[in-house]
Design a protein around this nucleic acid. Structure first.
Length: 259
DNA sequence: ATGTCACTTTAGAAGTGA
């Protein structure tokens, strides 16, 4: 089973390039972030025509997540537990039924800038709620995957110019510590389980010729529960997508699981 | 830091979020 995550930065803006990537990469499941669309306006037919089931959790103007799946989905839930006052559409869960079921958590973590400030407080609170959700799922001792745009640069080696990010919400010590606490629960960073060393990025800013200078950061991640990590056979970043026509500022990351 | 992009309100440019 091939499961991808892709922050598309607007479904309307990616109406040509997203289907083109789907046809080429042929994932079974895709976790989408920043669809920037309400559910009613999401162009589901484009994906249903390709054999995908479509589950959205949209919002007007910004945020919004979705799951596309060629395999059956069960028990879809929307929103990250832990704060009923949180109106931002950043989280969706579903169980995909392959040769064995895997619980999928698609997430778009708050950016958090400027830090310090209320936006950073919201980011840290959101990370705390995500940690709690992971802890609850771990108790079930079943395979699950948390994938998406975490807006966290885990280590200096995950940025071309780490010094430029030292005061940024994506790299502040509290952000990194919260991400590490997820790993300390026993979750596996799928990309780092397969590939070590610097120079691997999932985001290049539109500004400053970042792509041409390879001024990137690794902020899109796939965290696997222990039972899911046992099924991991590959994890790759489709970085070439950033150099294509009308690209998102993020590129897809995907895993293959023996499931 | 910035050689940008996508969205909204609202009908042209400005604000916002990233």
């Amino acid at each position: 089973m091939k499961i991808a995550s892709f922050n598309i930065n607007g479904i309307k803006a990616r109406i040509e390039t997203l289907p083109a990537w789907l046809d080429e990469a042929d994932p079974d499941v895709v976790l989408l972030q920043e669809i920037k669309s309400v559910d009613e306006n999401f162009p589901r037919e484009i994906f249903e025509d390709r054999g995908f089931t479509v589950e959205t959790h949209g919002q007007k103007g910004f945020n919004g997540v979705a799951i596309l799946s060629k395999l059956p989905l069960e028990d879809v839930t929307r929103g990250l537990p832990g704060n009923n006052d949180d109106t931002q559409a950043r989280y969706i869960e579903a169980t995909v039924i392959g040769t064995r079921p895997v619980r999928l958590c698609g997430l778009y973590l708050p950016n958090g800038n400027p830090a310090p400030g209320p936006k950073y407080d919201y980011k840290l609170a959101w990370l705390h709620r995500l940690h709690a959700r992971a802890n609850d799922l771990l108790a079930l001792e079943e395979p699950f995957l948390m994938g998406g745009d975490f807006n966290v640069i885990p280590q200096d080696e995950d940025a071309k110019y780490p010094g430029a990010w030292s005061d940024d919400a994506l790299a502040l010590p509290q952000s990194r510590a919260a991400f590490r606490r997820m790993l300390h629960l026993g979750l596996t960073d799928a990309f780092r389980a397969r590939t070590q060393g610097p120079g691997h990025y999932t985001f290049w800013d539109y500004q400053g010729g970042a792509w041409n200078r390879n001024n990137g950061i690794r902020i899109d991640h796939m965290l696997l529960s222990p039972h899911c990590a046992d099924l991991l056979t590959d994890c790759q970043i489709d970085s070439a997508v950033r150099g294509g026509d009308k690209p998102s500022d993020h590129v897809p990351i995907w895993v293959t699981l023996d499931a």
